[in-house]
Design a protein around this nucleic acid. Sequence first.
DNA 1: CCATTTTCAGCACGACCGTTCTATGACGTC
DNA 2: GACGTCATAGAACGGTCGTGCTGAAAATGG
Lengths: 195, 195
Amino acid sequence: MSKGQQTKTAILDEAVRLASRVGFNALTIGQLAEATEMSKSGLFAHFKSKEALQLATLDRGREWFTGVVIRPTLASPRGIARVRTLFDRWLVWETETLPGGCIFVTGSIEYDDQPGPMRDALVRNQRDWAEFIESVASAAVNEGDFRADLDLQQFAFSLQGLIYAYHHGTRLLRDPKSLEHTHRGLELLIDSAKA
Amino acid sequence: MSKGQQTKTAILDEAVRLASRVGFNALTIGQLAEATEMSKSGLFAHFKSKEALQLATLDRGREWFTGVVIRPTLASPRGIARVRTLFDRWLVWETETLPGGCIFVTGSIEYDDQPGPMRDALVRNQRDWAEFIESVASAAVNEGDFRADLDLQQFAFSLQGLIYAYHHGTRLLRDPKSLEHTHRGLELLIDSAKA
DNA sequence: CCATTTTCAGCACGACCGTTCTATGACGTC
DNA sequence: GACGTCATAGAACGGTCGTGCTGAAAATGG
């Protein structure tokens, strides 16, 4: 990897951390330059615009997410076990990987009413994520763990709700019972999907 | 009501609408002045700081919320009916009242990692909201509609998840099935709480 | 109807924003 | 070892941010 790519990746890693705390718009080039101990113009040269930086940050976040959540999930045995792994890995992603929690939660709310490339990228991301959840649930159906007439989209929708509720409970309210509530919510969801 | 209070309220009404679309930080004094056809300094004189403006906007939003959600809910007969009314009124609040959806959803994510008066106010707000949900569920327990050993906090947590999932589904993904998924999610939640 | 307070616009400020231009040093290639 | 590409810094730009100061117009109350 060339020197340029190396520093660019280092910048983006820091950008992902920063964005998780303050969001993508408050992710300022000046602050990011300070955090990476670079000059504003030196950093800026790697991206030709702020929007490109934001998009690259989102993409770098996606790479992290793949490593922390997607791959471990796929390495888990199909069926209910994999559903549980998916959720457990997401909890790791939310609580241990980034200082400010899931950047997709943050970004989704930030751009849900603001048209543009960032919104488009987030929509693609979240659609992929929903489809991934559905595919994991679908495998559980094929394994006979979940009932055959399970509405996969409904399942993904409810699981996404749990994700948001956990973010809300831990990040904003700092409610120590959030984890317990989330797990009970997942069990209720799984029970309702069982064969 | 004095002239000052009158324009102040008009400013805040516009601020609530603006904040629902772009958030509380992107709620700029310049843009708000333009939207209300006032000068920046003239508008600013009503609030002594931007933070005071943000807090006042949040409070004005709370007033709207009380009128759209809280009061109609309390006017509904105790029990499951009131639980359904609570949710239906929230859907009205989310989809019809403001152009960018619930400002508490937006604000909660925006400030969940940023200490200060805004965060404190949002936490208070959301705790009150959670307690309100619990009180409505508690009434349903007393009416005999919900089982006596229902975990009220767990119920409020799950319902809050549905709220976020609906916001996510309609605002970001623009998924036309969101409403249906939300209703099915509510029914599942209600069924699991029944006596 | 006048005196006083309130309401608001105009202007200016320093800070920071994203962005551009220019210069300089490091690097890979022959 | 010279050369050209690449990586970065420095300075400066126009713009917008939040925030004060000043004065005029408007509302208020006796």
